[in-house]
Design a protein around this nucleic acid. Structure first.
Length: 272
DNA sequence: AGTGCGGCCTGTCCGC
DNA sequence: TGCGGACAGGCCGCAC
């Protein structure tokens, strides 16, 4: 499910409901997501308030006076705001209840997600420490990519999805950005010139901003935090359209696999 | 150091 | 209709 726009949409959806609200109860039904949920988390956050929620890549950082709770939605996770008395259904692993009778519920069928705790600066956490730049920040530029790509012979698509380079660009948006920039997905990262990288950076930013504006991509089970679906899937040009005609040139789109992930592209519009 | 793969899980879809 | 296999939006950790 969640790529950066979905995570950002989730943040914006849940924040107004729980910011500055005191936590009254925590229910953990499944302790093993990608990693074990720290056993002290309940005692640590009950009675405390969420001061702020921030996003770093696809990690959500829930700031408390005594530390930070980190949530990653993995491949299939979502967070919803519900009434505290709503009974749990399948894969509802964690509930956090607030004094205003609202509840943050973490549902994740595949359990690739994570809920962690860090006492000090969350950016020092091993999972966050080595993350690359934020794609919507000024640091994410063609010059930056050129420097990073210099020694990289890996495919540009794999490179773009490397979180040590830029964080939060997942399979859908990497696929879409390469199409928008007219770059062949298997081109070596170091072979892309500054001019092409400029197009790529512009495309990534534009697509991510547009998707956030639309409230995230709707695919299968993705729901915004209030339960309403996002609407970006109508705007995908290549992802999920293998075999169908390219919107630009009508050539049938091709599907390949790169690093175990599907890539769709147009042989005609995306040249080496 | 950079690269490529296996693995974590459940659900869905497609072909036989 | 049932069943096996491939695949799905992520990403760590390991072997080479």
């Amino acid at each position: 499910m969640p790529e950066l726009p979905e995570v950002e949409t989730t943040l914006r959806g849940i924040l107004p409901h729980i910011k500055k609200q005191k936590i009254t109860n925590v229910a953990i039904r499944h302790t093993h997501l990608r990693w074990p949920i720290p056993s002290h988390i309940k005692a640590t956050i009950i009675g405390k308030s969420v001061l702020e929620i921030e996003r770093r890549g696809k990690y959500l950082l829930f700031k408390f006076s005594n530390g930070t709770m980190i949530i990653h939605l993995g491949m299939s996770g979502h967070l919803r705001i519900l009434a505290t008395d709503l009974p749990p259904t399948k894969h509802d692993h964690v509930d956090i209840c607030f004094a205003n009778h609202k509840m943050l519920r973490f549902n994740d069928p595949r359990r690739f997600g994570a809920l962690l705790w860090v006492d000090g600066d969350p950016l020092i956490h091993p999972l966050l420490k080595h993350l690359g730049v934020e794609p919507l920040s000024a640091q994410f530029s063609a010059r930056y990519l050129l420097g990073k790509a210099q020694s990289r012979s890996t495919a540009i698509k794999t490179f773009l999805m490397d979180h040590h380079v830029v964080t939060g660009v997942g399979n859908i948006y990497a696929t879409e950005a390469l199409f928008a920039a007219g770059i062949h997905p298997t081109s070596m990262a170091k072979s892309i010139d500054l001019n092409q990288l400029k197009k790529l950076v512009i495309a990534v930013k534009k697509i991510l901003r547009e998707a956030i504006k639309q409230g995230g991509t709707t695919l299968k089970d993705f729901m915004k935090s209030d339960g309403k679906p996002g609407y970006f899937s109508n705007h995908l040009n290549v992802y999920g359209r293998a075999g169908l005609p390219c919107y630009r040139c009508r050539h049938p789109l091709k599907q390949i696999r790169q690093s175990q992930r599907g890539t769709v592209y147009c042989e005609n519009c995306q040249q080496f």
